[in-house]
Each structure stands twice: as C-alpha cells, then as structure tokens.
Design a protein around this nucleic acid. Structure first.
Lengths: 122, 122
DNA sequence: TCAATGATTCAAGGATTATTGAACAATGGA
DNA sequence: TCCATTGTTCAATAATCCTTGAATCATTGA
C-alpha cells in the first residue's frame, strides 16, 4: 500500500457513519449487505449512505456488486489488512514500542505453539 | 481507545503533512524534534506546521514539551499502539482474514490464523 | 530592560466535504 | 409494457478544514 492510498483510507475512516459501515460490513462477512439494509442500520437516508459508500469504495476499503435489484457492499479484507500493516510498519516504522503494545490478548501464539506440540488448548 | 478518539486519530492521519510529521517523529524517537526543525523538514511555514501539530496533539498521537526556547514534539507510542489495536480488534473485529495479513516477522501465528479461517464463512 | 529567537494565535480566504431532497436509472414481477 | 422496488446522481446549502501572513507570546542572552 502506498502513502496515497493510506491517506484516502484514513480519510474514509475518519467519518462516523463510514467507520460504522466498515465495522458492520466486517462483521457481516464476505456475503456483505445491501445498500438499503446498510442505510437502515445506520439510520441515514439512502442518498447519504450512497455518498459514503462511494467514498469507501473509492478508498478501496469496501467493494460492491450487483445482486438482482440490490447493490451489495462487502468489506475488502485485503485492503483492511494492508492498512493495518501500513500503520504498523510504514507509518510506525515497525517501532518496537508500538509492536509491544500489540501483544495479542487471545493467546494466539501460545495456542499455536501448543498445537504444534500436539497439546490440547482450553 | 474509544470510537471518538479513533475518529480524530484517523482524521489526523488523513492529511499529507500530518502523516509525514508522525512518521518523522516515530523515527526520531522519544527525544522528539523542535517545531522549527519539523517545519524545515516538511518544507512548510512555521504557522502551518503549528496548525498541524496542534491537530495531532489534539488527537493524542503526539505530545509536546517546552525545552528552553523550543517546543519539542514527540510521538505518543502508546496512542499509536492503541490505534493499531483499535483498527485490528474493534474496527476489524479481530477478523482472521485481516489478522492473517499481519503475521509477525517470525511467523508465530501462521498456523493459528490458518485454522481460524473457517470463522468467516457465513 | 532590550533585542533576538522560536513558536503560537488570529482573521480572512479558498478548498474540500457532508447533508438534503428531488430527479433519474436499473431491475424484476404482474 | 407498466409499475414498484432499489439505488444512484445532481444541485444547492451548510459545515469543516487548510493555507497564508501579520500580530502576538515566551524565553534567553547581552
């Protein structure tokens, strides 16, 4: 991810409705949600949600596809991963002080290590 | 980190000069850099850099301290780590597809991420 | 105290972004 | 074909943000 795309991604996420849309679409999964459904959940007008969806698509954070009468939007997991990566590695220079704050609370690494040794993880 | 702070942090990073300042300060380390030096490196006027530094401080991503005649700015590593964390866990719901793109250099969690892939299937 | 240095604040402007409602386009069923 | 459904686009307004230069504040040394 280059800097230009990072800038537009940050801009996309800096608006309340758009951040809420992204969070909703991430949870919704690859199946995505129709524009009308998103508008309803966000409590905004169709034209307003359309404006924000277009912004998000322009940034690459979400994708759209037509499905019959509906236009279905879904999160671009790759783009989101790229953004996290950019923030951690490019922007924050892979700084130890920041990586340290990123210990995974789910015990992911411990579980992975345990599994590789054939143990059962609770 | 709450949503409100995430929004202002994203807004802060969505501007070219400010993103450059953050990157510069992260590399500069805890010692930080004086405002004048930052202005010089960014190639912008003192008043303009002051404006952006204030925005960044308001978002909590950087901190300031006076040091003799200079005002020295430094990166808030905690805030940056919190933002990465928010993006990964709150915003992206700790989604495996996104975590996967975030392998640490040692490949620690590769196995666990691969195993979790099934979670996203609706 | 005075002058010089380093930086912020303020006001004015220009530019970008957000919101609203009306008009328009695409799809699928009767 | 006609119509209802589903979304988008457009134009106008409102709100925010960015830039600039002049004025101001704080600190230090002579």
């Amino acid at each position: 991810m280059d800097e230009r795309q990072a800038l537009t991604s940050f801009a996309a996420l800096s608006q309340e409705t758009r951040l809420a849309i992204v969070r909703t679409l991430v949870v919704a999964g690859p199946g995505g949600l129709a524009a009308g459904l998103i508008a309803e959940r966000m409590g905004v007008s169709p034209s307003n949600v359309s404006f924000h969806l277009k912004e998000l698509e322009r940034s690459g954070l979400i994708a759209q596809r037509r499905e019959s009468r509906s236009i279905v939007y879904s999160a671009s997991y790759d783009a989101l991963a790229d953004l996290v990566k950019f923030l951690m590695e490019d922007c924050c220079a892979g700084h130890p002080m920041i990586r340290e704050g990123m210990q995974r609370p789910d015990g992911c690494c411990k579980a992975a290590a345990a599994r590789s040794e054939g143990d059962i993880v609770a």
